[in-house]
Design a protein around this nucleic acid. Structure first.
Length: 143
DNA sequence: TAGGCCATCTGGTCCT
DNA sequence: AGGACCAGATGGCCTA
C-alpha cells in the first residue's frame, strides 16, 4: 500500500479559507470531505479488486510483471473477441475442439503462445486466434 | 533522470 | 442532502 498524500481535509484543515465560514460549517464540510475521500478510496479498492480478477482470467503467459490496467483491458478485449470468433465459427463448432480449448486455457504452457504478448497490435486478436487454432491442429495430429 | 503507472484528493455532476 | 461516479491534479514509486 502506498503512503497517502498528505491531505488538508484528512489533517483537519480545509482547502478553502476556514475563516470565511462559521466553525460549525467548517467542521461539517471537513467531515463530509473526509467521508467522501474514504468512500472514494473504497470505490477505487473495489475497482482494483475487479481488475485483479480480470487479470486472473486473461492470458498473461510469459509476463513476470503484472499487466497494467490499460493492458488488462486491451488483453481482455482481444481475448474475448478471439474466443468469440472461435465459438461462432461453424467450421470449428465441434465438441473435441471445445473440450480441447477448455483444457488449454486451464493448464497449458505460456511458451506455446508467444504472440499473445502482442495483443495490443492491430493483429493481436487474429494472432491469438491463429495460435489457439494451430495448437489444436497439432493436438489432433498427435492423437 | 525521465517516463510510466498508480493512489489519493478534490470538485463537479447526476441520481435517489 | 448525501452517495456514486468521474476526471483532473498531484506526488510517490519503480524501471530503463
Amino acid at each position: 500500500m502506498k503512503s497517502r498524500r498528505p491531505s488538508c481535509t484528512d489533517s483537519g484543515s480545509e482547502s478553502s479559507d476556514p475563516d470565511s465560514k462559521s466553525p460549525e460549517k467548517y467542521e461539517t464540510t471537513t467531515r463530509r470531505r473526509m467521508a467522501a475521500n474514504a468512500r472514494e478510496r473504497k470505490r477505487m479498492e473495489g475497482l482494483n479488486t475487479a481488475f485483479d480478477c480480470l487479470r486472473k482470467v486473461v492470458p498473461q503467459w510469459g509476463q513476470d510483471k503484472k499487466l497494467s490496467k490499460y493492458e488488462t483491458l486491451q488483453m481482455a478485449l482481444s481475448y474475448i473477441m478471439a474466443l468469440n470468433r472461435i465459438l461462432t465459427d461453424p467450421k470449428r463448432h465441434n465438441a473435441p475442439y471445445r473440450q480441447w480449448l477448455d483444457l488449454q486455457f486451464d493448464c497449458d504452457q505460456p511458451e506455446n503462445y508467444p504472440c499473445l504478448m502482442r495483443y495490443d497490435s492491430p493483429a493481436g486478436q487474429e494472432c491469438i486466434h491463429s495460435s489457439i487454432l494451430y495448437q489444436f491442429k497439432s493436438h489432433m495430429v498427435h492423437t
